[in-house]
């Protein structure tokens, strides 16, 4: 699905939308220059191929994915592809840096909470959660060598958002040479490559209570943004997709939504999840924008000249 949109200062952009990895993916690039017009179709094709390939590898909703094969082989070493190993190492590194708040092994808790099927099915027909299971092992119990991984029995991997962010990074970097600038947006985790217009590109931050509303507008000049929210992919009171590894239950930290900037989408995704779990103190360490459950918005992002602060 393609659209041409007018953005700030009368510029026009072309936007292509498709579905992959259980989310909405968009490619956004300038419309005006001949180079941009020629490169857009090629860039879109490249991005779609990348998402299709990596979705086939990392989805937990297809029995033939590499992720499902690795999970099914828990208890014995399993040889994995180079792409799988790269994402696994990124996840393990994120787990180390966040003290385990980012944990790729919380899948059993997510299944118990009710997210056992594709989200469209869960939203249409939610089922009652099962009791929270005991963890058979955590990220630190994984044995990883150069080409294989050994999951303890009862442990299962789910890369979730980091797979989307990483795929957005790869897709954007691969296609960057085709366009003056481009955004790859994987369901709100977005990566900008190239040289955008001076001052940056407008990105709206959605209201966690009403995604059709914008609570703040950002100007993105480089890098990536990711948002974690407990009001998205939520199928009942207190039931959502962000599991707190400390409790093995859906997170309840007083933060409803965390939007984070980083140089890559992979890192922004890790930080946004960490910020949501770490709470208000996250602003001491990273650039972020937090929405609390009282509706307060706190940020340490810089304001553009002329931006108004407060009510």
């Amino acid at each position: 699905m393609d659209a041409v949109l007018e953005i700030a200062d009368g510029r026009r952009v072309r936007r292509h939308t498709f579905g992959a990895m259980g989310t909405r993916v968009r490619v956004i690039a300038p419309e005006a220059t001949p180079r941009a017009r020629d490169g857009f179709a090629d860039a879109v094709a490249m991005v779609e191929r990348t998402f299709a390939r990596l979705e086939g590898r990392f989805t937990r909703f297809r029995s033939d994915s590499e992720l499902m094969a690795v999970n099914a082989a828990a208890g014995r070493p399993t040889r994995v592809s180079a792409e799988f190993m790269t994402l696994l190492e990124l996840s393990m590194d994120a787990a180390r840096r966040t003290g385990g708040l980012f944990d790729p092994t919380v899948l059993p808790a997510l299944l118990a909470a009710g997210y056992a099927r594709d989200y469209a099915d869960v939203a249409r027909e939610p089922r009652a959660p099962r009791p929270t299971p005991r963890a058979a092992g955590r990220w630190s119990d994984l044995q990883v060598d150069a080409e294989s991984v050994l999951l303890p029995e009862g442990v299962a991997l789910d890369f979730g958002g980091i797979a989307k962010g990483w795929t957005a990074d790869i897709a954007a970097e691969q296609a960057a040479h085709l366009l003056p600038w481009m955004i790859v947006d994987a369901g709100g985790d977005l990566r900008l490559v190239g040289e955008p217009p001076v001052g940056g590109l407008d990105v709206g931050v959605e209201d966690p209570f009403d995604p059709s509303r914008e609570i703040l507008r950002l100007k993105l000049a480089s890098g990536a943004l990711a948002t974690s929210s407990v009001t998205r992919r939520s199928w009942g009171p207190g039931l959502h997709h962000l599991i707190d590894p400390r409790t093995w239950r859906p997170a309840a930290t007083g933060i409803l939504q965390a939007t984070v900037w980083a140089e890559s989408c992979t890192e922004a995704e890790v930080r946004s999840k960490w910020a949501l779990l770490a709470g208000h103190g996250a602003l001491d360490e990273i650039h972020a924008l937090l929405v609390t459950d009282e509706g307060r918005l706190a940020t340490n992002l810089a304001a553009l000249d002329g931006a108004e602060v407060g009510a």
Binding site: A8, T23, A120, G187, I215, L216, R217, R233, G310
Partner: peptide, 29 residues
Amino acid sequence: GVAYVTSGGSATAPVAAPPPPVTTGGSTP
């Protein structure tokens, strides 16, 4: 590489600007 501005529908007076081509708010279906 990011800064904030306010806009229509947010905290302060509306700005006559077109909607942004991209938004962020969590995992969009």
